[in-house]
Design a protein around this nucleic acid. Structure first.
Length: 267
DNA sequence: AACGTACCCTGCCGGC
DNA sequence: TGCCGGCAGGGTACGT
């Protein structure tokens, strides 16, 4: 579920609750998904960073706790029927809520991501200076894969998931099935800009909360960006730009939404 | 190496 | 009403 805007919002809310606190215990009953957590126990939490959709808790003594929320993971201030792990702090606790159990927690030596190849291969942060148009364009041009698949891949650019990939492609006016090799420089430029704009706007609104409200912040607050979705989960509804019904197809194994008029395959 | 597909989990929703 | 298939925002493990 959570993509860059949701994970970054989570990081900002969590930081004041975690920084400088001692992680007295990390309780759970699932050593397969939450690995070596005992190595994190008893350590002071120094900082909380984000890389792509990963949260990175820096711990004293050179350890690091890597957290991925998966599709339905999130932190809560109190227990829920789907609490899978509990972070015990000195005078408080944080509850890791994850109905589908796709989330992962792993304690590593700081910066040692050999067990997490995706984190090692992670592309640049789209809202940072490290995201360079030239490298992005060359990466697109080098692949026959669809734009949708390339945006979800995390290696060309990090942090996009199904929602923001669809929204960025719509804003750029590009058909999600276009192969990377087919992009002209001006089209790639539009996509590059659209990615930054969509993510920035979503971040400013605290991300997206869909349907059952699976995603919310520790204090229970939902995001507000879902009201701004222009294609995602709008199959059959009129395009907000031109009125043509939004289409849905399966691409890179995921539901993909686009406007056939604003995002024609041929340019 | 680079693709696609199945799979991991659980809940919900629509159709019959 | 009840059941069943399909679907869901993430990533990985395979096969080709």
């Amino acid at each position: 579920m959570p993509e860059l805007p949701e994970v970054e919002t989570t990081r900002r809310r969590l930081l004041p609750l975690l920084q400088g606190k001692r992680l007295e215990a990390l309780e759970h009953l699932d050593p397969r998904r939450y690995r070596r957590t005992e190595e994190a126990q008893g350590r002071i939490i120094l900082d909380l960073k984000r890389r792509g959709k990963f949260l990175l808790l820096g711990l004293e003594g050179g350890k690091e706790l890597v957290v991925h929320l998966g599709m339905t993971g999130g932190f809560r201030l109190g227990p829920t029927p789907y609490t899978r792990a509990i972070f015990r702090l000195e005078a408080s606790a944080l509850y890791f809520h994850d109905p589908r159990r796709f989330g992962r927690i792993l304690c590593v030596d700081q910066g040692d991501y050999r067990e997490i190849p995706l984190l090692e291969a992670m592309g640049p942060e789209p809202l940072s200076e490290a995201f360079r148009f030239e490298a992005f364009y060359q990466g697109l041009r080098a692949s026959l894969r669809s734009l949708k698949a390339l945006l979800l891949d995390q290696r060309l650019v990090s942090g996009l998931g199904n929602i923001y990939a669809d929204e960025a492609l719509h804003q750029a006016g590009l058909h999600p099935a276009r192969p990377g090799t087919s992009l002209e420089e001006g089209e790639a430029r539009r996509l590059y800009r659209a990615i930054r704009e969509v993510l920035e706007e979503a971040l400013a609104l605290g991300g997206s909360t869909l349907g059952d409200g699976a995603y919310q912040q520790p204090d229970g607050k939902p995001g507000a960006f879902q009201a701004r979705h222009r294609v995602y989960a709008r199959a059959g509804l009129p395009c907000l730009s031109c009125g043509t019904p939004i289409l849905r197809l399966r691409l890179a194994g995921r539901g993909t939404h686009f406007c056939p008029r604003c995002q024609p395959f041929n340019t």
